[in-house]
Each structure stands twice: as C-alpha cells, then as structure tokens.
C-alpha cells in the first residue's frame, strides 16, 4: 500500500542545507528505495552512492535521523507512519555533494598498515594453524568497509585535528587481525600506539553499535590490541630487552612514504 511520507534530505556540499520532500513509499521498501524514487521523480541530480542494495558492498552509508546506517538496510516499516525521515551524509568525511562523501581518509589509513608478513622461509602448505587461530580473524574479515564505525567514532567525528594521528576502529581492527595471525612475523604493536593512535580509543563501543555486520570491534579487536600494546610498552622484560639492545629492529615501522609530510620530519 502506497503512502506519502516526509523526507528531509541534505542538498549541497559541506555548506548545504536540508530540503524537504513529500515522496511515495510502498510496502517493503527501504530508505534507499525512497531516495531513488525521489531521484527519479523530483530531484534527478540528487547524489547518492550505492551498489548492491543487499548490505554487502558498504557504499550507501548515511545518517538516518542522526543514526549512522546503511540506507539499503533501513526498512521504512521500522519508522512511525508520520515520522519525518532526515537523511544526511556521514559527518566525519568531507561532502562531495548531497549524500556522497569523500572517504579517501580511510584509504590513506589502510595504506599505512604493514601487510601480512610470513616468514620468507615458509613454502605454500607449510602453515599449521589451530582452528581457533583461523576463526578469530574471520570475524574481522566480515568487514564490508562501509566506514560507519569510522564515521561514528568521537575521536575524529568532530575533531579534524585527530585524523592525521588516528586510524579509526576499522583500521585498528585490521592491525589487530594481523597481530593475531600466528604465522605473521611483523610486530605492529608500537606503531598501533605511536602512529595509528590506539590510545585515543576509550572503548565507548560506538563502532560496535553501528556495525552492520555485527562485528564486536571493541571487545574482540580493540581491547585485545590494547592488551598487546601494554605488554610491548610496559612489560619490564621487554623494557629491559630494549634497553640492552636485544630488541633492535623488532618494531615494524609504518609503511614508508605513505603519510604525507612524514618524510620531512624524519
């Protein structure tokens, strides 16, 4: 059954404003369907990024009534029949136009992480891993990179100045995943703290709350990573090892030449 609903949608760039529309809504539809109808019937130039319409590509992240969500998974039936629906772009990233953000910040942070580093002596087929070690990172691999966790994180949400030194939950989770791999030989614990800003995270669990894949980001990746970092930095034996030069080169550095301006400092 078709009804007419009120939508308030962000138009323009960072200095844009909300525009109000009355638009038809049918049974079974999600917010993205309604945005598409709006595009087809009233505002053909409404910029919306989307792809799979099945919650698996991570393209259609927006804020609906202030809550970071995938618009393709936000069912219209979950709103009150006379509720006005406000759709705005993700606040943490610069707006290109309307509901579309420039999420390059995330790609920058991804490049800085040293990738999986197995022992060069291992040949294909050499790995012998326990199922538990295989299973643990599998949860993090469910990530669809919708960047809703990055968007909601208060460390960067209203603090542009923290962006350079904080990689956000998605990429700290990636560091944790690599650190938990039993066949990985790199040690990213120091850069997790020094370069990727793990210490900024004060485990408010907002990232876990908004994750459309229900990954327990805080409990299963960020807190275990914090524990590993504490071992690296405050264990007296590790400290002694560093003092007498036994740990030389043990800390893997951030991938070189990935952070603009960093070369000049060094």
């Amino acid at each position: 059954m078709a009804t007419e609903r009120t939508f308030r949608v962000w138009r323009g760039d960072d200095d844009g404003e909300l525009a109000e529309y009355r638009v038809e809504v049918n049974e079974g539809e999600v917010v993205l369907d309604v945005l598409h109808r709006l595009q087809a019937t009233q505002v053909p130039d409404l910029a919306v990024r989307w792809n799979c319409k099945a919650g698996k590509c991570g393209s259609c992240s927006v804020e609906i009534n202030g809550r970071p969500r995938l618009s393709c998974m936000a069912r219209m039936s979950t709103f009150d029949p006379d509720e006005t629906i406000i759709v705005t772009p993700m606040r943490t990233f610069p707006v290109i136009r309307d509901l579309v953000c420039d999420v390059s910040y995330n790609y920058q942070k991804a490049r800085e992480i040293p990738s999986f580093t197995p022992d060069p002596k291992t040949e294909p087929g050499d790995f012998r891993m326990y199922q538990a070690d295989v299973g643990r990172p599998q949860e993090f691999r469910k990530c669809i990179e919708c960047f809703l966790c990055q968007n909601v994180c208060h460390v960067i949400r209203d603090h542009e100045e923290n962006k350079e030194n904080f990689s956000g939950p998605r990429f700290l989770m990636r560091v944790a995943e690599l650190e938990m791999h039993p066949e990985d030989t790199a040690d990213r614990r120091n850069i997790a703290q020094e370069d990727f800003g793990l210490g900024y995270c004060n485990i408010t669990k907002c990232c876990t709350e908004v994750c459309p894949e229900n990954i327990r980001i805080t409990d299963n990746s960020l807190i275990p990573l914090k524990e590993r970092v504490a071992d690296r930095r405050y264990d007296p034996v590790v400290w002694l090892g560093s003092k007498i030069g036994l740990r030389k080169g043990a800390d893997t550095p951030m991938v070189p030449n990935t952070r603009p301006g960093r070369e000049a400092e060094e």
Binding site: Q39, V43, P44, D45, L46, D98
Partner: peptide
C-alpha cells in the same frame, strides 16, 4: 535534459 551541474550528478 539534466538539471544541476557536473559534480556527482546521477541524472546527468
């Protein structure tokens, strides 16, 4: 006919 400009304009 398309309305709007050349930046991220799905109608265009």
């Amino acid at each position: 006919r398309s309305e709007g400009g050349t930046i991220y304009n799905p109608g265009w």
